[in-house]
């Protein structure tokens, strides 16, 4: 869906993005990770032509972006940024309707779309006619997300959209984002400097360093086979194992029929959280609940390190 081929961006002779190539498949959630100055934001902005390419080629939906007028291209690509950039003189409703209005949708269709989107991002109907400054930071970013999704774009670009939020709101919105991705099946290119956020959200992770792509792979891939010391540092040397555990749910290591004492845990609980429970309960095994509220089996400490 998004295809970068030998992409280069130079500013005054300095290569900010240096020969980057990767492909994001339809419906994939791809996270670009790197420290500041790694070129991750620039790479993102190359895709909707906010930043012009120096050389190389980018295709979106199979079409070379250089062949599409920039305004037309941007109207089919959703865009959300850290500082949100809501239009302060427009109501929530009008903000969300920005791109549909640019595309001259009929009023009735716009109104219906706004209602659906507000439900999707879980904004109460009462906020519809409010102005951005009357909302909390988390609510504002929900509006920003709804605005990015408004014209049903094939691709979403998100530049640290959770960066300015407090940790609790951030966690909640990350979960929402995962849910929305699952519900809409959009192809998402997402920039963050937070490796944990990347590992939690991504189907596929692109790690950038000094403008170069140092690794491109699934979260498991990156944890199990880090490409060099830079990636090893980024995933946290000592914690990499725990992060790996966090990627899988308890249900994957379930031993059916094994009986254990105590309160059963949710089968969707991550293995990392299961380990934490064992430590708290001073136990080497946990009972796991089934869908009917009974006990399906157990998860064993020995199985976690298998």
């Amino acid at each position: 869906m998004i295809e970068l081929r030998n992409v280069v961006k130079e500013y005054g002779g300095k290569r900010v993005v240096d020969d980057v190539s990767f492909t994001v498949g339809r419906g994939q959630f791809c996270v670009l990770v790197g420290s500041s100055g790694s070129g991750k934001s620039t790479t993102l902005k190359l895709v909707n032509r906010l930043v012009p390419l120096t050389s190389g080629a980018i295709r979106v939906g199979g079409e070379d972006i250089a062949q599409v007028p920039p305004e037309a291209l941007r109207r089919r690509i959703g865009y959300a940024i850290q500082s949100i950039g809501l239009f302060p003189h427009w109501s929530v409703e009008r903000n969300i309707a920005t791109v549909p209005r640019l595309l001259k949708w009929p009023e009735a269709r716009i109104a219906e779309r706004v209602r659906d989107l507000m439900a999707l991002v879980r904004l109460e109907e009462e906020h519809r006619r409010k102005y951005p400054h009357q909302l909390s930071g988390g609510q504002q970013q929900r509006v920003g997300l709804a605005r990015a999704l408004a014209a049903d774009p094939e691709v979403l670009l998100m530049d640290e959209p959770l960066g300015a939020l407090d940790p609790i709101t951030r966690q909640a919105l990350a979960d929402e984002l995962a849910r929305i991705h699952a519900a809409t099946g959009k192809t998402i290119l997402f920039v963050t400097h937070d490796m944990d956020e990347a590992l939690r959200l991504a189907d596929i992770v692109a790690i950038l360093h000094d403008g170069q792509l140092v690794q491109f792979g699934s979260p498991r891939d990156i944890l199990e086979h880090p490409a060099g010391d830079f990636v090893r540092d980024l995933v946290g040397r000592s914690e990499a194992g725990l992060k790996l555990l966090a990627l899988s749910p308890v249900s994957e290591r379930l031993r059916r029929g094994e009986i254990s004492a105590g309160e059963p845990v949710d089968p969707a609980l991550s293995l990392r959280d299961a380990l934490a429970q064992m430590i708290l309960r001073r136990a080497d095994r946990l009972p796991v609940a089934d869908a009917e509220g009974g006990v399906a089996g157990s998860v064993l400490l020995a199985d976690l390190v298998r």
Binding site: L50, I81, F87, L102, R147
Partner: peptide
């Protein structure tokens, strides 16, 4: 706010809009 202008461009508004 420059962020407002950036998103306006990113949404596909023309300079005139």
């Amino acid at each position: 706010d420059p962020a407002v202008i950036e998103t306006a461009i990113g949404m596909g508004m023309t300079p005139r809009q």
